[in-house]
Amino acid sequence: MNGLPLNLRLRRAMLIALLLGLWAPVKIVWEQQIAREQDNLRYHGLVMNRQMRDELGQGLTIGILSGMRSVVADFIWLEVTTAWENQEWFRMGGLVNLCTSLQPRAPVFWDMGGWQLAWNASVGAERDVTQPNELRRLKAARFWIDKGLDVYKRGIENNPEYWRLWSDTGLLYQQRLKDYKNAAYYYQRASELPNAPVYLERFPAIMYGLAGDDQGAYEAWRALWEKLTPAQREMKEHWKEKIESNIRRLEQKLSVPKEKRVFPN
């Protein structure tokens, strides 16, 4: 029961209005500043559209609305695994897209999603005995490889600083598409990123070699050699002997003039 006299009620209302009135503009400005800061981190949050809402259903939508986005994405990811085990490739593709839209800055979804499509789905299509002929099987395989490549590339767009997406794209070009030039490009980019494993630095040169481009391979090995400081050359992981022997071999093969050789003797 409230029997507070009217004048006190008015005073209370005015005090509350004053507090909130002072705070509200500060709040809005501050929140806008936080939003800008998060945009600068390339973190754009999530804008739900109707299609996504339909795909998620009511329960998961509420989960996302209450700030449990990554957990929801993880649960959907479990479905990706199930779809893979059941060889439901189109369903798997849709789920991968959903996960990556939910968490575009979670590289593992792009990474694993691209791999699922470009490798597992495409190999599955190659072995699909329900297809009447080899041509259709290859066509289907190529379809999934392109899908996976697309996932990798969109992943790179969203997470350009994550080396693994670059190197996995390189791997896909190298092993599934036999496109060594592109593979060399992606390995090169991967090796330049922070946290990338050292061994990637040798991959571009090896790719040129696989492409039969001796000149390109030579230039790549040479560039690597020149990039390394004398101290680095002595470190085991840079594998000096391998670089040196390749340069020597290619200098012989391309008959580079002695004065221009790295190893003239």
């Binding site: 929140e31 936080i34 998060q38 981190l41 973190y43 999530l46 990554s70 800055r105 979670a106 590289p107």
Partner: peptide, 14 residues
Amino acid sequence: MNSFTIVDEILAGN
């Protein structure tokens, strides 16, 4: 409350 979902970014390793 949504700005706190930046936690997801941290967990994703960014």
